[in-house]
Design a protein around this nucleic acid. Structure first.
Lengths: 205, 205
DNA sequence: TCGAACAGACCAACTAGTCGGTCTCGTCAT
DNA sequence: ATGACGAGACCGACTAGTTGGTCTGTTCGA
């Protein structure tokens, strides 16, 4: 059984960053919490913010991959949107700390790291807005929707979950995801598309 | 014309915190940027994080007041919800930096300050969830909604705006607010309530 | 003249990062 | 088999600089 120090550092730092913020945790605290030393740390990371970058990248790469797959799985924008949301929400159980750090501490990434992350984040955004545009084009979605605002509204609604979701809560992340899908489909679908969505079990009840 | 140093410090620190984060700006940077000194700063604030608290409090107090008034203005949950959202969104033009700091830097508040802020934030949340519960009771809203999740979904959608809204963008904050109201009412209202909402000009088109 | 409003030198604590050194273990010539 | 060798993993004292905060003044209006 090898004990991969690098992984241990990432895991421990992650939880501490989530709780106390990037600048609220010193390198010394990190290394003592995993039982290593400054030397051990800087053997694996060039700087403290490389660690921050790694945490960002793990999360956004995973989300982008899931969204890409969801997009390719269906042709119908309604089903695409539904799967993208469900996949994204389900990430919270596994990556809650990553997400918190991602949305709270990204200002502390140095520019070169920041652009790398921004690229992937923008790709993810595009998948959502493209789906909304296609939904309008094929007449499943309401024509008065603006893809940008609607896209950011959806992302905001889902992203915000990191501020309040607790795994110990009464609802599972899947139940929350179902309610989000229900709310979002009601807000974007035409009234006449709603009934067929109900028929396909995409909505609650 | 009196030059209120305290106000100048708050304004300057606010913009710097928004850009570089609470720990990304030192007290020295703050005082030199407003042309004063350590002595001047600590004459007005007991500690750096009191300044952070003041910024938090200005914003949340304002929002809470607006939401309370909006709640009291109407009897109908639909119109209440619509006004609460519109009022909240319109805050972004005036308080964008406060909001960014509020949602990014609150971990750095010491516990005593944190509870003060949390109280007001919870009051605000309650206004939203209560409105949703009342909307269900008077049969304007869909019965399958869960007030908690729906409330957090709405708050998330609106709050997230601070991550992407730019005053220089093509849409005004009022237009964005109208689109949010449109999306939210479509997602919470019963289909038969939608038509009367359109009649009352609450929805787009 | 007295106190509020500020100035700025100063301090102890802490910061990220460095660097010479040690320890472990696989490789390879003997 | 064994000992020499070397490379990567890791250690921790150290440094140079920064941090929030204090303290002794000074200025200045009432």
């Amino acid at each position: 059984m090898i004990s991969d120090l690098r992984e241990k550092i990432i895991q421990s730092a992650l939880l501490q960053f989530e709780e106390k913020g990037f600048h609220g945790v010193s390198v010394n605290e990190i290394v003592t919490s995993v039982g290593t030393s400054k030397g051990g740390f800087y053997h694996h990371f060039s700087a403290k913010d490389e660690l921050l970058f790694v945490i960002h990248d793990i999360f956004i790469s995973y989300v982008l991959e899931k969204a890409t797959i969801a997009y390719q799985t269906y042709e119908s924008p309604t089903k695409r949107l539904q799967l993208i949301i469900k996949e994204f929400v389900s990430v919270f159980d596994r990556y809650k700390p990553h997400i918190s750090v991602f949305y709270q501490e990204s200002i502390y990434l140095r520019p070169e790291y920041e652009t790398l992350i921004k690229d992937k984040r923008d790709q993810f955004k595009r998948i959502v807005t493209d789906t909304i545009m296609e939904g309008k084009e094929c007449k499943e979605f309401r024509q008065e929707l603006s893809p940008d605002i609607t896209g950011m509204a959806i992302l905001g609604m889902v992203n915000w979950t990191y501020k309040w979701y607790k795994q110990s809560g009464t609802k599972t992340i899947e139940e929350i995801g179902d309610e989000f899908v229900d709310l979002i489909l009601h807000s974007v679908l035409k009234v006449e598309s709603l009934s067929s969505a109900i028929y396909q079990d995409l909505l609650i009840k």
